[in-house]
Design a protein around this nucleic acid. Sequence first.
DNA 1: TCTATATAGTTGACAAGGAAACTATATTTC
DNA 2: GAAATATAGTTTCCTTGTCAACTATATAGA
Lengths: 148, 148
Amino acid sequence: MDEKEQAQIIIGKLMNIGGMLQKKANQLLSPFGLNQQQFSLLFEIFKAGRVNQKTMVNRLMLEKAHVSKIIKKLHSMGLIGIVPSTDDKRSSWLSITEKGKDVVEGCRKALGEWNGAWITSLAGGERMKMVDSLSLLQSSLRDAIQDK
Amino acid sequence: MDEKEQAQIIIGKLMNIGGMLQKKANQLLSPFGLNQQQFSLLFEIFKAGRVNQKTMVNRLMLEKAHVSKIIKKLHSMGLIGIVPSTDDKRSSWLSITEKGKDVVEGCRKALGEWNGAWITSLAGGERMKMVDSLSLLQSSLRDAIQDK
DNA sequence: TCTATATAGTTGACAAGGAAACTATATTTC
DNA sequence: GAAATATAGTTTCCTTGTCAACTATATAGA
């Protein structure tokens, strides 16, 4: 198995696992009226405290049109607040509401209850190595994508 | 970092990497008029020689409605042939056409040219370990999803 | 100070993907 | 053999995600 073949197998598996995980997350989150990307954006706003869309676009590597539409939805659901920026009239500050925090907590609980179980197929030591390897791959993939 | 925390980090990274890879693959394949899922279905038909939709649904873990629509598209593009089964009138046999084989080759080349580069951030030995770990995760995730 | 260019975000058009309901056929049960 | 149930695949409806074009505002350059 040469380098190229290994690369193809790893990438195939990463896409397959990623696809299954996303689909499962979408199912687990649908009772909250969100999908995985919408939740991750809400969660990022929660973590950031106060943030603008541009930053979310960059941090999550999503299309700005898509972020705009998700923001609209989250706002209409009452999960985030939007305050126009005084520095830049084109822009707004996003922050989570109390309702939004409740939803984030519920989502994390729903995901956590499912996620914890199946990963025990990997031993503890291997999990630490996996974290390291995935971090490496993640950042070099990011670089490769942004270089384009 | 306890087990639960490790699980969350690994899953977050797997989804993020999977998402980036899928998006990139979609970009690379769009000149062929396909996206990543459509290509993977075409590729599976290519590998199988002759196969029915039910098998594709199971093997790729896609919605049957979705497979049906992709089949329709691939057929209208002239990439696959469809022959009604004589055993079961509800079903058909799918196979790739010469044109389809050309497209598969072109797609593999396009993906291969990009995929090979960035994964070198992992050393050879680590790549083998990664293959093993991802295989474990993949099959236990599959089991977890199908158990539901 | 005015014009040209860049940027933050929005909207429309379109294709994709999921869920549910459907049709036609196969299998099981009585 | 007929009725009930299951199955293979299709279609409709709806939401999502991408792309391109747009508006309003900020910044750069002359």
